[in-house]
Each structure stands twice: as structure tokens, then as C-alpha cells.
Design a protein around this nucleic acid. Structure first.
Lengths: 242, 242
DNA sequence: CCCGGCATCCCCATTTTTGTCGATACCGCC
DNA sequence: GGCGGTATCGACAAAAATGGGGATGCCGGG
């Protein structure tokens, strides 16, 4: 029985590589967490996963993505439970992936209402968290859990999560700095430009007036600081294909 | 001593992820092998690495990339030794990463001239090869070696190389189908278009006539079947930024 | 030695893009 | 109810790109 918790099977290596590959090429209008969270959970051999984004302006978490969690639980966390969560306060400023038990002993955690009301019902026992601050002030996080019948997380998962989170962070960062400032309509038009459509064609495709297209295109130029559609096209297609 | 050869250190996981990330975003005019071979060798814990591309039309290997090899040895391999190489004949049609010793017992190999003249002097003893056919008929390969004082390769490296090679293959494939049909000058102009330069600007930057730029641009359109520069820009920037 | 590919240059007519002014209407928020 | 953001439309002139010709010189392979 030479089983060593840190090893990765050939299949896991391949899945890991695919996740990193996808993160590198994901379109900016897709949430990288949506596209990868199931596979990340599998790689970390966890039971449930949740991810939130801390919005500094509002002082709260929002934009949840979860796997194997009860949806209403996640909704409730965003709505109210986040304000009585004793974990994130303590862990948010730590660097890198952290095992919950290391910062918050289980015997202490089990006594809290947060545990009995929220964690326990959804089978969250052994926890592994990472909080990743981005330039914009937002903090992106990933929270992975195993139920109490499973082994606690160990170094293999810490290393994996550190790496995965860094790449998700890069991907989110790109979204932050990139096309997010455009309105949905503007992104739609940007995508068509990247496909080589002329303004006339775009107005036909979208069923709107030529002038409208012109307005949107000009606004794209302003917002993205592009001087012509070739440059705009580059900005879009850098993350469009894949 | 619970050392298990299949594990990856946290640093290796991070390097591996970076390699995959880079392969996903590498410009099409950069050889993905050049950009990653050192790191791949380190991940596989090998001593030397060489890579060639089999050109079916000419019936020979060309375009070598190597790490820690004597350059003249590699040149000689491409020039002549490849035709007396007893290994690749036997291994080229095998699927996936293969340990040389498994197909070609060492006691047999050590008797050959190829070993004494070529492999031995450069310290190639334990070998791990992969041959990856591409749609165009070309076969891309990676050949990693450890010297005789080191452990033979095992499953960890097979899994890793399988995955790495698949991603390099993807990257090369993209190059094959993409910008490779353009001349160097045409690619240069395509890149500038993707950065948003007008034809006038391009002619100034490159110090050539406006008309010349026009000719190159038109040829790009023809070859890549693009109807305007926005589309061309998309083709270039899909792999340009990183 | 000739041919093909490459890089360089020129002209002309037409289409598309770009810049810069407008304007109206809807919707959510304070 | 006003205000900001979004989506929608219009007009005009300048700048750039596009499509179609044709032309030269260089170089390497058959």
C-alpha cells in the first residue's frame, strides 16, 4: 500500500492540464469558475465547492458559483449568512490555500451556530479555502469541502488549489480589465466585428439600424481606447476563440 | 522514506500549469517547443531533450529543438544519423509516451553503432519518447533521456509526457492550419494590423512603400480567406496576445 | 537557364470605416 | 421626478481600406 496522497493519476494530470488550458483561452464573457468548478472539485477530491466574489464597494460577497451544494443554502449565504460567517473574517487575509482546521480548530467551529445551521446540513466538514485579491479590490475565493467521513485535505490539495486559483485569478483579472466595461450590446457588436462583419452586415444580422451600429462601435472605440476595428477585433478575438 | 516517484511538488505543479497555459496562448509564429522544452525537461526530471518534426513529403526529420544536447550532435542527427536510427522505426507508430527500454532492450541497444556513436557520448541512456502524428501528415516527437546513473523513467513521466505532448500537438496543429502559409513578411504585416496600425503606419514602421503594404495585405486576405482586416486581425490576435 | 516564390512598387475606382455633430425613448435608482 | 446609463436612429465629410490591374528585381531549385 504505497498510496501517497500527493500523487495524481494520469487522468487527473490530463484533466488538470485541460482546466489550465481552458482558463487560458476562455472568452471574457464567460465566468471562468462556471467553466471549471466541477473539474476542480474532482481534482481536489472534494465533495462540495463554492466560490464567491467579495465586492469592496458594497462590503459583501456576491456572484456565487457552487457544485453539489444546495442552491437555497448558497442563496441564503449570499443573502444573510455571510454576515455571521466566522471563518472568512479570519481567513480572508491569509495568503494562499489554507486548510480551515488549521486556522479554526474543529472543536471550536462545531460549537458555532454557523456550523450547525449552515455547514453541517450541507456536509461541509474538512475545509480548504483560498482568497485571491485582484487589482480592482475585489477578492475572489474558492471554498472546497469534504464531509466528515473523508480524509482531511493535505499538501497535495493545497498545492493544486494554489495553482488553480492563480490561473482563475488571471482569467478573472483579464475580464476585469477587458471587455467587462462594455454593455452587452456593445460586446455583441464587438464579437461580430471580430468575425469580419462590416457595419452594414451587423445591422442586418442584429436587425437594427446602421446608425445604431455606428454608435455602438464608436462607444467600443472610446471605452477600449481603440482607434480602429482591427484593434478592436484583436481585443475581442484574443479571448473569443477557443 | 515515503518518496513516491509519481508525486509532483507544489513548484512542479505550478510550472506544469504555466507550461500548459503558455501553450494555450502562444503566438502562432513561435515554436511551442522552443518556449517550453526546458521546463518540460525539468518536469520530467530528465537530463537531455530533443524534438524533431517528421516531414512525410521528404521522408525525414527536420526542425530540431534540443536542451542540453551537443548542438553538433543534433545537427549530425538531422543530417545523417537519423537514417541509421534503429529506435524511431520501431517506436514511431506506437501510441503515447513510450519508455525506450520497453521496446528496445538495453542489452540489444548497447550493441548498436547508433548507441556507441550517438547516444552514449551525449549521455542518453534511459529514454522516453513520444510520437504525435498531426493531420497534415507530419509527426512531431519529443525524446527525453536520463543518463545511466539515474533512475529509469516510470509512470509519472509517461503520464506527464502524454499530457504535455497532447498540448504541444494542439499548439503545433494550430500553427499548421493557421498562419504558416504566410511568408514572414506577410506575418509581420498581419501582426501590425492586429495591433491596429493603418497601412500608412505600417509602411512607415517597416520603412517600405505604401503600395507594398497593400500588396502584402491583399495576399494575406487571399491566403487566409479573410474579407477585411478585422477578420485578419482576429486570426492573428487569437494567438498573438499572451 | 528558366521558373516560381518572394518582396518591392504604382495607379484607379469603389466601398467601408471613422469622426463629429446631433436626437429620442426606455429603465432603474435615489 | 430627475438623472445616468443604455439602446435606438440620422446626416455629412474626411480618411482609410478594398479590388483589380500591372511591373521590377532577387533568389533558390530543378
Amino acid at each position: 500500500m504505497a498510496f501517497h496522497i500527493r500523487d495524481m493519476t494520469g487522468e487527473e494530470i490530463a484533466v488538470f492540464a485541460d482546466v489550465i488550458h481552458d482558463l487560458a483561452r476562455i472568452p471574457q464573457d464567460v465566468d471562468p469558475r462556471e467553466a471549471t468548478s466541477e473539474r476542480i472539485l474532482r481534482l481536489l477530491r472534494g465533495d462540495t465547492l463554492a466560490s464567491y466574489v467579495w465586492e469592496p464597494a458594497k462590503g459583501r460577497y456576491y456572484n456565487p458559483v457552487s457544485v453539489n451544494h444546495d442552491e437555497s443554502n448558497v442563496a441564503q449565504y449570499v443573502a444573510s449568512l455571510q454576515f455571521s460567517d466566522p471563518l472568512t473574517h479570519r481567513m480572508r487575509r491569509l495568503q494562499g490555500a489554507q486548510i480551515v482546521e488549521s486556522s479554526f480548530p474543529m472543536n471550536e467551529l462545531e460549537k458555532t451556530e454557523f456550523y450547525t445551521d449552515f455547514l453541517q446540513p450541507d456536509g461541509m466538514y474538512h475545509g480548504l479555502n483560498i482568497f485571491l485579491p485582484s487589482k480592482s479590490g475585489k477578492v475572489f475565493d474558492l471554498r472546497v469541502w469534504r464531509n466528515r467521513h473523508h480524509e482531511p485535505f493535505c499538501q497535495r490539495e493545497i498545492d493544486l488549489l494554489d495553482t488553480l486559483a492563480a490561473h482563475i485569478g488571471r482569467s478573472l483579472q483579464a475580464g476585469d480589465e477587458g471587455l467587462a466595461i462594455l454593455t452587452p450590446r456593445e460586446r455583441e457588436i464587438g464579437r461580430l466585428i471580430a468575425r469580419g462583419c462590416t457595419d452594414k452586415e451587423i445591422s442586418d444580422i442584429l436587425g437594427i439600424g446602421f446608425s445604431t451600429v455606428r454608435t455602438h462601435v464608436n462607444r467600443c472605440f472610446e471605452k477600449l481606447d481603440c482607434s480602429n476595428r482591427a484593434e478592436l477585433s484583436a481585443r475581442f478575438s484574443a479571448t473569443l476563440l477557443g
